[in-house]
Amino acid sequence: MLTTLGAPAVRLLSNNPDKAAQLTTHGITITERVPTGVHLSPSNLRYLRAKVEHTQHTLTLTPLVG
């Protein structure tokens, strides 16, 4: 779809390395990977930690204060 729309290259806003790999596999050039921020809270810490540990998302999980 990106190629059809005339976008053979993109700046990718994502923390997911698999997303970049899939786009590259399909012929899309990633010119830059821009990480997104996350809102870390006690209720989503386990979820975000799982993303880092199991799918190698590039998230920085700073310790919660409070």
Rank of each mutant, 00 (worst) to 15 (best):
M1F: 13
M1V: 11
M1Y: 10
M1D: 12
M1Q: 12
L2W: 05
T3W: 01
T3C: 01
T4F: 10
T4L: 08
T4H: 06
T4Q: 06
L5Q: 11
L5I: 02
A7M: 11
A7Q: 02
A7R: 03
A7I: 09
P8W: 02
P8D: 06
A9W: 03
A9C: 10
A9K: 06
A9R: 10
V10G: 08
V10K: 01
R11S: 07
R11M: 00
L12T: 01
L12W: 00
L13E: 05
L13P: 07
N15K: 01
N16V: 09
P17H: 10
P17V: 04
P17W: 01
P17D: 01
D18T: 04
D18S: 08
A20Q: 06
A21L: 09
Q22A: 11
Q22S: 00
T24M: 08
T25L: 12
T25D: 13
T25I: 10
H26Y: 15
H26W: 13
H26G: 11
G27A: 09
G27P: 05
I28H: 07
T29D: 12
T29C: 08
I30H: 01
T31L: 02
E32C: 03
R33G: 05
R33S: 14
V34R: 15
V34L: 15
V34H: 14
T36F: 11
T36P: 11
T36M: 15
T36G: 14
G37V: 07
G37Q: 05
V38T: 05
V38E: 04
V38A: 03
V38G: 04
V38Q: 11
V38N: 06
H39C: 07
L40K: 01
L40F: 01
P42E: 14
S43R: 13
S43G: 04
N44C: 09
N44Y: 09
N44D: 08
L45I: 12
L45C: 13
R46S: 15
L48H: 04
L48N: 10
R49T: 15
R49D: 15
A50L: 12
A50P: 01
A50I: 03
K51S: 07
K51F: 08
K51G: 02
K51E: 04
V52W: 00
E53Q: 14
E53D: 14
E53I: 06
E53G: 02
H54C: 12
H54Y: 13
H54T: 13
Q56A: 15
H57I: 07
T58N: 07
L59P: 05
L59I: 00
T60D: 07
T60M: 03
T60F: 01
L61I: 09
L61V: 00
P63G: 15
L64I: 14
V65L: 12
G66W: 04
G66N: 13
G66V: 07
